[in-house]
Design a protein around this nucleic acid. Structure first.
Length: 569
DNA sequence: GCCGTTTTCGGCCCGACTGTTTTCAGTCG
């Protein structure tokens, strides 16, 4: 059973109990526990077996019992009891924007509405309007909400959203709008983005909003007022702009950056200190004691300013209180890229061009790691071609200055766990990344053993894009990440954090677990042309979200990770 | 249901908007 399944069960339990009018704080407890389990890297079943479930924040006696039962038997009595007399359609109904448990309960009680379709029908026929507290406007909004829900695209990958928003911010700045920034999950550099929130400060809100709604990329204006504007771009992405007074700017930025869970913790701390925190500022009684900048808000609360990438309520507040926040790795710490392709396989540029581009980015070293022959369609190299490439790398090193080009490969891990290149050849290379490119449908055990076999090979320095996920396209293959990380720790193998924004693989939480286990992380772009070297920033942001410091990152060292002691055993 | 150098019981974030209301309930972020 995956952690995700347990988290889903707890969320469903909360949803159903919400419909039944259960104590909202109980629901919050279930949802918090679900979030913690979803974030967890170790298998929840391991924690159950070892009786460590209650070490997790937000899990006490009650939830421990429910989770243990669910993990052991696949069933949860509490959930089944709650589902008694509730059709699954009711849970769907509550997901319609503007429809909550009260509306759903009312519609079921009076009109026997059990599904989204039945609710839509009740709204269209006018029967809904006859209910107490329901008017024509509400019925109309429910129909709009259903329409919106059916059209919703879901979350978009960070790599697609960020460039769009950056160009939009630049344009606003050219229009003279000051202090304009992206907030929300984008500012936290989450791997996917739900909605786009932009914040600006100024006294003439209307003017700023007008500049915003007049931008060339705007396809449709949804709302335009003094403090808020809302637009759709041509591809249907919604962007909201909010304008606040300078005195509230820091508070608003903090508020709109989130995460929600982080904000709840912060407000709780404020309350404990006799203060009140809102998007307008930090107040003692009626007096605003902070609000102009985020820094002063955190400071008055007795905290250092927590970087947005850490604001997830994953322990950052406790760490901040103890003065133990990590000193996060930065883009400028990166000294090289350990995984790039060239036109020897499916890349677009020559070894020399890639080297020059890497030097331009301030790198000290670059590992050439083309595919091996199992990937024929990508021009994978066989042993003799790879040996030829080693010679070519030597020649390039003689020609280029200011960067060291290292030999390597992205060797394919075959379905049976053997590598697609002889050990004698791998032994000649400076750095070897091993990756899975086929047989994605293998079951968890088979896939895990397959990758463990590669880790045990003494020539393998790093495992590439461990789960093979493509954000917004396909889930990763089923693999026991924690078992891989433990084996990597034992053998001194690094794990790649593939920086391509469609991958970000391993993810932030796996990075954090790697750090805990002492596994080094290699942040690589997997670039197939010179421009893609710039994708490094997505990898660094994800590493930051995983609390990684410079010393945790293999390619943040000045010296290339080759030679004696590079892979201690 | 969870949690605690202010508590083992009594708390649990805060404000805005909407629609249907004469003072508020429901929903959202």
């Amino acid at each position: 059973m995956r952690n995700e399944d347990v988290a889903d069960a707890l969320d469903l339990l909360a949803d159903v109990l919400e419909f039944k009018g259960e104590n909202p704080f109980k629901l919050r407890a279930y949802r918090k526990a679900a979030r913690v389990l979803r974030d967890l890297q170790e298998d929840v079943s391991t924690l159950v077996a070892e009786g460590r479930l209650r070490d997790l924040p937000g899990i006490g006696e009650g939830i421990e019992k429910k989770v243990a039962q669910f993990v052991k038997t696949g069933k949860m009595d509490a959930l089944e009891a709650a589902m008694e007399g509730v059709s699954p359609g009711i849970v769907e109904i509550m997901k319609i924007p503007g429809v909550g448990p009260r509306t759903a309960a009312l519609a079921r009680e009076k009109l026997n509405v059990q599904s989204v379709e039945e609710l839509a029908e009740a709204a269209r026929s006018g029967r809904l309007t006859e209910l107490p507290g329901m008017g024509a406007k509400k019925a109309e909004n429910i129909l709009k909400g259903i329409e919106f829900m059916r059209r919703a695209k879901g979350r978009m990958p960070l790599g697609k959203v960020l460039p769009l928003v950056e160009s939009l911010l630049d344009e606003l700045r050219r229009h003279g709008v000051k202090n304009v920034v992206a907030a929300g999950s984008l500012r936290r550099m989450c791997e996917t983005i739900g909605d786009i929130d932009i914040l600006a400060s100024g006294r003439s809100g209307e003017k700023i909003v007008r500049a915003f709604t007049g931008l060339p990329l705007v396809a449709r204006v949804l709302a335009s007022g003094d403090t808020k504007g809302s637009i759709l771009t041509a591809d249907g992405t919604q962007v909201d702009l909010r304008v606040v007074e300078p005195a509230s700017y820091g508070a608003a930025l903090q508020y709109f950056t989130g995460s929600k869970a982080h904000n709840i913790r912060l407000r709780s701390i404020a309350r404990d200190r006799g203060l009140k925190l809102s998007e307008y500022g930090l107040f003692r009684d009626e007096r605003r004691v902070a609000g102009r900048t985020e820094e002063e808000i955190y400071e008055v609360l007795g905290l250092p300013c927590i970087p947005p990438v850490l604001r997830e309520d994953r322990g950052e507040i406790e760490a901040a209180l103890e003065g133990k926040l990590p000193k996060l790795v930065e883009l400028r710490d990166i000294s090289g890229d350990l995984h790039v392709h060239t036109n020897w396989s499916d890349g677009h540029n020559s070894i020399e061009e890639m080297a020059a581009a890497a030097r331009k980015r301030g790198y000290r070293y670059l590992v050439i790691s083309d595919h091996t022959r199992a990937l024929k369609i990508f021009g994978g190299l066989d042993a003799s071609r790879l040996l030829e490439q080693i010679e070519e790398v030597k020649r390039v090193n003689a020609r280029v200055r200011g960067i060291r080009v290292l030999t390597g490969t992205e060797v394919d891990i075959r379905a049976d766990g053997t590598l697609d290149m002889a050990d004698e050849v791998l032994a000649k290379l400076d750095f070897v990344t091993a990756s899975v490119h086929s047989g994605f449908a293998q079951d968890r055990d088979t896939m895990t053993r397959r990758i463990l076999a590669a880790i045990e090979n003494p020539h393998v320095d790093s495992i590439g894009h461990l789960t093979g996920r493509l954000l917004g396209e396909r889930d990763g293959y089923d693999v026991d990440v924690d078992a891989i990380l433990r084996a990597a720790a034992r053998t001194g193998t690094a794990l790649e954090l593939n920086a391509h924004p469609a991958r970000l693989d391993i993810n932030d939480q796996a990075c954090r677990r790697a750090k805990e286990l002492g596994v080094k992380v290699a942040i690589n772009t997997d670039a197939h042309d010179v421009e893609q070297l710039d994708l490094m920033r997505f990898g660094v942001a994800t590493a930051q979200r995983g609390w990684l410091e410079r010393s945790d990152v293999l390619n943040a060292r000045a010296e290339p990770p080759v030679g004696k002691g590079a892979r201690p055993r």
